[in-house]
Design a protein around this nucleic acid. Structure first.
Length: 520
DNA sequence: TCGAAAGTTGCATAG
DNA sequence: TCTATGCAACTTTCG
């Protein structure tokens, strides 16, 4: 029997390495490629740059599907309302989608699967957003997510290399498939920013256009530089170069315009027969970091919050709306920090180490504000804002989990100087300060009045004074962090007696949490 | 069981 | 310009 299929695009906005789409095309007479504009995920808090990237990606996908005599249906509404309607309207018998590990996605998909069942629709999903099946990694580590990169590496190496990506469907694959589209479907077109009620006047040049075509072009462009790829070491790249010092493929991987497995295997090809860098600093290593945080996010409950998160150190962060707003709006008085936050807002991408600098500054370094607040800002503004990576990295940088050397604090003055002595990056994003001599560009408040006047920028009037004294708060904060660590519950040691009896599953983080709750 | 070593990317200073 | 050291000092893993 030939099926009438919906392939549901959520992430995975691509045709290449899309096994769920390929299984939709099997025994298929009618195909409906659908994207649902779910108001839970796509709403007013989502930043404009992110909206532009999403819409660009949808447009590109629609374009590619049209080359296969199909199209994309962008349906407005909640998945739980949309699907039963579409199942009936189109006489659907099969639904396919890419597996997604986020908590919201899991409950959404469970709900839609139930609705499909009620409508007699078969559901097929495939793992293709990550290199590996994340649940398989956790299984391999006795039911717990690895908490160190080293451990992650040894688990992963026991799994062997990730699966090879599969090619995109061709017109041959579409031979017996029709793509009905009535007049009535015109309302299910690609939205525009205007239609969504956004004020597009604040938009700047589109440096990173969304879409699979651009993703593959960008991948190709970087992979051509084989020496650069082989020598790549993340800590050696610059957070404040005027042009990105890394690939900026992350937004494309986040939205699934680029398959992580395609990226992985392309790197393997470039490495072949050459001396090359290795994880954690290599480009392969970067993809494994992504996998690492995905695994943590699946295995650790309440991963995007401090409360009820069993790996997260409980810290007595301050509630300080003024400080938070100053950080968010690039008016901390530290040019390096404010330049980064300006780039983030206008371009939607900042270098990984720049994220370190501003994240440390907001949390344990200077402002002592909960990392969860920073997480929200990044989620809205970053093109590559990814639920798991965002939560994981904020916990890392705030020394709440994974990373514990809280006495290593980034300086909002010294860190940037290492790679940009002249402050060209600051001058680019904060042109107000461009006439300050290099000597004062990172600390303009130290410039004599005459220098400030000559620069046409009076500190405290035209540009803010620093909102904290870094050396003071740094010392105080290290002590506060020490106190928070002292209150951490002692690590649970596994008693050897329990290890008897052959294979035994180690207690998962969830089990440990439940046990603790019971003992209270 | 316990001590040593490692941990993607700190800073300031001395040589 | 590079490397070593003190600073104060964390957790996890490994042998």
């Amino acid at each position: 029997m030939a099926h009438t299929c919906i392939h549901w695009f959520r992430k995975g906005l691509r045709l290449h390495d899309n096994p769920a789409l390929m299984s939709a095309l099997k025994d298929c007479k009618e195909l409906y490629p659908v994207f649902v504009l779910d108001p839970f995920l796509y709403n007013d808090t989502m930043g404009l740059n992110r909206w532009r990237f999403l819409i660009g990606s949808l447009r590109d996908l629609d374009c590619s599907l049209k080359k296969l005599n199909s199209r994309l249906f962008v349906v407005r509404g909640k998945p739980g309302d949309v699907f039963p309607r579409l199942f009936k309207k189109w006489g659907v018998t099969k639904l396919t989608y890419e597996y997604d590990t986020e908590p919201y996605s899991l409950s959404r998909d469970q709900n839609v699967t139930q609705l499909a069942k009620e409508n007699g629709v078969e559901v097929i999903y495939k793992v293709s957003h990550t290199l590996f099946d994340i649940n398989r990694i956790i299984e391999e580590n006795n039911g717990k997510p690895p908490l160190t990169y080293n451990r992650m590496q040894s688990i992963v190496s026991s799994l062997g290399p990730p699966k090879k990506p599969i090619p995109a469907p061709t017109t041959d694959d579409m031979n017996d498939v029709s793509c009905p589209s009535s007049k009535d479907e015109e309302k299910n077109g690609i939205p525009t920013l205007d239609e969504l009620g956004h004020d597009i006047s604040s938009l700047t040049e589109e440096l990173f256009p969304g879409g699979e075509e651009e993703a593959l072009r960008r991948l190709d462009e970087h992979m051509k530089k084989s020496q650069w790829v082989c020598n790549f070491e993340k800590p050696q790249t610059s957070p404040n170069s005027l042009m990105p010092s890394t690939t900026v493929l992350s937004p494309y991987v986040t939205f699934g315009c680029l398959s992580a497995r395609t990226f992985w295997w392309k790197l393997t090809e470039v490495y072949q027969g050459k001396k090359h860098s290795a994880p954690p600093v290599s480009l392969h290593g970067q993809l494994l970091w992504r996998e690492f945080f995905y695994t943590a996010s699946v295995g650790i409950p309440n991963f995007n919050q401090m409360k009820d998160n069993p790996v997260c150190t409980q810290v007595d962060w301050d509630t300080n709306p003024e400080f938070l707003a100053a950080w968010r709006e690039a008016r901390t008085g530290f040019p390096f920090i404010d330049a980064i936050m300006t780039q983030l807002r206008s371009e939607g991408w900042i270098h990984h180490l720049a994220r370190h600098a501003v994240a440390c500054f907001l949390t344990r370094g200077d402002l002592w504000i909960n990392w969860v607040e920073g997480q929200k800002v990044f989620e809205d503004l970053l093109l590559d804002g990814d639920w798991a990576l965002n939560a994981g990295n904020w916990q890392w940088l705030s020394a709440s989990a994974f990373f514990h050397q809280f006495f290593r604090v980034y300086s909002p003055v010294a860190f940037g100087k290492k790679t940009d002595k002249n402050g060209d990056y600051i001058k680019k994003y904060l042109p107000l300060l461009k006439k300050f001599p290099p000597q004062y560009i990172y600390e303009p408040w130290k410039a004599p009045r005459s220098v400030q006047q000559a620069a046409g920028c009076i500190i405290g009037k035209d540009y803010p004074k620093p909102i904290v004294e870094h050396d003071d708060v740094r010392k105080k904060n290290i002590q506060r962090m020490k106190l928070a660590y002292a209150k951490r519950p002692p690590a649970q040691s596994e008693s050897p007696s329990k290890k008897q009896g052959g294979k035994r599953k180690a207690p998962s983080v969830v089990d440990t949490l439940n046990k603790k709750a019971k003992s209270k």
